[in-house]
């Protein structure tokens, strides 16, 4: 049976790039079923935190464990259960939507025949499946990248600004998708500046500023007011 986990724990995690402190002494636990909003101003350390949880960036100090297993010990097995959608979309523009999904499905040991058509349908790109990604609009690429992120049914889903370039309908579809993922036991972390979309979607909010975790609390309505009070009042 493949490796799986039901929580991700960051314990006193810091990351320095030379003398610059990107993340400083962050402790945070994400549980199955959570949709955690990672909020904070530009340069707060959100992308570095996502990079560390994705095993792409090594913490300078502290530990990250996946169901109790340190990320450094069993990297490949842990990565099999992680899906990442970053600022850049991790798509090959020269290849078609189908070729991109086929490649990433195979990379994760999936049988493309069973998952690629579903993913194309999920992205609403069945009709454009053989077109090069370079011919797609930003919103179409974003939808395709989200399907690429989820194609291997990851346990931990790390999304950095997933709503960029999406129209209202696509935002609703993506939000519903994330809720379904969490309801099925996924751990979803969404870094976003779009507080209106995050309001009502996230179940917890972790607010970071200058690399430090300012708040980790249950999200309630009026997210923007809470965010302003914490970030601008801090």
């Amino acid at each position: 049976m493949s490796f799986d986990f039901d929580r991700v724990e960051l314990a006193d995690v810091s990351r320095h790039f030379g003398r610059r402190r990107a993340v400083s002494h962050v402790s945070l636990t994400l549980h199955a079923g959570d949709i955690v909003g990672l909020l904070g101003p530009n340069g707060a350390g959100k992308s570095t935190l996502i990079g560390m949880m994705a095993t792409l960036v090594t913490p300078s100090s502290g530990t990250i464990t996946y169901g109790g297993t340190p990320g450094v010990r069993d990297g490949a097995s842990i990565r099999a259960r992680i899906g990442v959608l970053a600022h850049e979309l991790h798509l090959y523009p020269e290849l078609s939507a189908r070729q991109n999904l086929d490649f990433f499905a195979r990379l994760h040991g999936m049988r493309p025949a069973t998952v690629v058509n579903d993913a194309l349908a999920g992205a609403g790109l069945t009709d454009r499946s053989d077109d090069a990604v370079s011919s797609f609009s930003r919103g179409m690429r974003q939808r395709l990248a989200l399907e690429r992120t989820l194609i291997h049914a990851p346990r931990l889903v790390l999304l950095d600004e997933p709503f960029t370039g999406l129209d209202d309908r696509a935002v609703r579809i993506v939000s519903d998708r994330l809720r379904a993922l969490a309801a099925a036991g996924g751990i979803v972390l969404v870094a976003t500046h779009d507080l209106d979309v995050a309001d009502g979607l996230i179940s917890r909010m972790a607010i970071v500023r200058s690399g430090r975790l300012l708040s980790d609390a249950a999200a309630s309505s009026g997210l923007r007011r809470q965010y302003r009070a914490l970030v601008e009042g801090a």
């Binding site: 990442v84 979309l89 991790h90 523009p93 994760h108």
Partner: peptide
């Protein structure tokens, strides 16, 4: 340069395979 555009090298490094 192709792997830099779209940061696809990161996507490759995220694969559950020996790097």
């Amino acid at each position: 340069e192709r792997e830099r555009y779209g940061e696809t090298l990161k996507a490759l490094l995220l694969a559950p395979a020996p790097r």
